[in-house]
Each structure stands twice: as C-alpha cells, then as structure tokens.
Design a protein around this nucleic acid. Sequence first.
DNA 1: TCTGGGGTCCTAGGACCC
DNA 2: TCTGGGGTCCTAGGACCC
Length: 447
Amino acid sequence: MSLGTEATTGHRFALVDVNNFYVSCERVFDPRLADRPVVVLSNNDGCVVARSAEAKELGIKTGTPWFQLAPEAERMNLVARSSNYELYGDMSARVMEVIGRFGAWQEVYSIDESFLGLPAAAEPAFAATARAVREAVRRLVGVPVCVGVAPSKTLAKFANHIAKHNGHLDGVCSLGSLPAADLERLAARLPVTEVWGVGARTGEKLAGQGIQSVADLAAADPARIRKKFSVNLQRTVLELRGTACIAPIDERADAHQIMFSRSFSTPVDTVAAMADVMTVYAQAAASRLSARGLQTAVVTAFAGTSRFAAGEASNPSVSVPLPEPTDDPIAIVRAAVAGLEARLVPGVRYVRAGVVLSGLTRAGAARQGEFDLFGTPDDDGAPAAGRDAQAAANLGSLLGDVKARFGQASIGLGAGGVQVPADWSMKRQYSSPKYTTEWKDLPVAKA
DNA sequence: TCTGGGGTCCTAGGACCC
DNA sequence: TCTGGGGTCCTAGGACCC
C-alpha cells in the first residue's frame, strides 16, 4: 500500500504556509535582516520561537533560552527581535486574504497557514495555481510561502513538507506530479512523526508496533490502528491513502474557552502582587470575551512555579462558577482574584499565572424570554438585576471602546488602569514598531 | 538571575439515573 | 432490599498543533 496519489480526478487540498512567518514579517519592514541569521523571541524575551533559515543553519533550536544565546550573538552575527503580535496578526490577515482569492473555499488553520480548496482539474493546473498563490503573496504582502497540493489535508501537509525541503521544487509541490519512485523513497525515508497529528508520544508507541516511517503508517491496518490508538490516528491512515476524512474546523464556531496567561519578567511572591496580576489578566480575558460577543459561566485562575526551579512546585488552580453567564469585567476580576488568593502558598515564587474563561455562550442567548422573579423593581419599574446586567454590559463595551481609541493602558479596573508597568510585567527589549497598526509607527519611505 | 502562549480533541473513569 | 446492565453527563488528563 502506498500513499494515495492514484486518484487523478477530483478536487484537491492546498496547504499554504508562510516560511518562518514571524521572521519574514520582521524582514518586510527591515531589509537589514535579509540574509542574516534572525530569531524572534517569546514573551519576556524568554526563548526562541521562530528562526530564519540562516539561524537554523547555525544549529539554533526552537525553545533555546535567549540568555544562552545572547553572549554569542554578536560573534554569530545573530539578530533577535521580541515578538510583535500586533504586527504578525495584521500581516496574517493580509496574507490570508490574498490566498483566499485562489480557492473555491478557504480554511484558515493558524496564524501562518491556510487550507485552500482547488476544484477538479488536470494535474498541471494544480501546480500552476500553487505557483500563482506563491507569486501573489510575495508581490502583494512581501513574505515567502510554500504550497503543497494533494487529495487530503494530511497529504497536503506532507506535500508542503516536501516543497519546503527540496530546493529545486521552488516552494511548490503537487503530490500527483511527483514521480512515483521519488514519492515512495520519500515516504519510506521520512519518520512517522513528520505526519500531521503524530507527535513524539504516538511515534514511540508506533515504533513499538514496527511502524517507523510515513510509508509504514500508510500501510497499516486502519481498524487495528483505531483499536490500539484512536479514531484520530485511524483518520490519519485513511488520509495518507488519499481518502479525505478530516472535517473542516466547523467554520470557526464559537471558541470553547478563552485564556490569558503570561510568564512574569520577575517572580511574584506576595498575595497583594498576585491580586494585581489577576486584576490585569482577568480584564484582558474579559475584553477578549466581549470583543467576541460572548459570556462566560466559569472563571478559572491559576499560577505556577518554574519548571526549572529547585524546591517544591506549586501550581494552584481554582474554577469559580458564576451565578449566571456574564461578560462583566468586574465580576470576572472578582472571581479570579478571590479564587486564587485563597490557594497561594505564602513565600513561594510564582513565575506565571493565567485566567481561563469557559462555559462560553453568545451574549444575550440565555437571556431570551427570561424573567427575573426576584429582582426588586426600581424607580422605572425594571427589575434591578436586569438593570445591573445592562450596566455591566455597557461597562465592558465602554472599556473596549476607550482602549481602542486611546490605547491598552488608557483605562482599566484597579491595577489594570496603571500606566507605569509593574515589575512583573512583560519584557520586550528588542521589539520592532507596530508598522501596520499604529499611525505613529507607520514606516516612512524616502525617494 | 534569565526557559512561550493559546488552543482543540479524545479517552477513561466516576457519578448518577432508570 | 438487593442485583445487574445500560445509558448519559461531566471532568481530568493526555496528546497534539502552531
């Protein structure tokens, strides 16, 4: 059994992704970064999250802490950038819009990847479309993409991998146009963990069953795989054989949870400081919630000590059910602060914390036809509880409006309204400007 | 001294009900 | 009162992805 490329008719899936996305975004606005080793760092300038090809050649791995690289950076001619998510988010929207022009349908899969539906056509047409996508994104946005085309999403991912690692293909690979012998050789050589959906753990387990390569997995018995592993891995086997069976991500139905979590630049070891953290993080989560028109029923607050610290680990976590679904930032902040305070171990140095909102529903959905029996009427006869809920909703959107107009630090509850950053707040020493989302950062061209 | 953040899905197991 | 089977719902934890 070989990979499912016998199918020569029918539609195709293209997987388009941006090469080294964060680095490529930085390079669009700073040509000095071209041809140099560049890394983009995680929040707090903690570790490497994106690398240019030159940085990969130097042997720098994803996840390498920056403090280990910094002393050698100059010698290696290495440049670091703090992550600039406003820039990447905006560039992503531009890239996705251009990609979408070329397909019958589009499924944006992540900040830098999109599936694209290509209607049935003769084989050479697929590669031609793929090249056109690559050209258009390069010309209109300025970042390089690779494109893989195949009869299923999993195979499109595989084709994309081939496009990326074989220079002579020029960033484009339609699996059906590859000579069969080449394809078999690649599938037999590539480890099974290169397959989309097969991680290190599953890879180990598969090895125990004698399944090592992509070709081995494609040849495995789907029913047996389902029994020994999961329905997901069974689908993967079918997809490798050319049967598309991974459903679209439900048109991005509403999110099931919203999380805001960060590591601190300096550990937090007092209850008062953690209360400030929770105040700020809970507001950040609440503003994402109202921006999406959702309400939450459960607020979870957590904190944690460093994985790398000696001594006892402490990972307190509380889930606080709310009396009714809400997007009221005050209620959410209160739940997070009160919930976590009770569980902190005094004197322990926490390095990260977060707030998760779950049990999400569309704002107003639960309220339809609901009548508050116990709310006491106030002056205008409306039940007080209803009025409070209305006031809370207004507050949420008011905060959002003010922030949109005057900036994130312009207004907030408690510690959230403070302009001077707390000493635990994020460190971004090497940040580039928000070229595309702030008027004051707009690049100036000189002719 | 300094080591990311934000998600999804599946499964197993317990509680509960009929 | 006891027993067993079958179903649903919920949650925690694992695995994976980018």
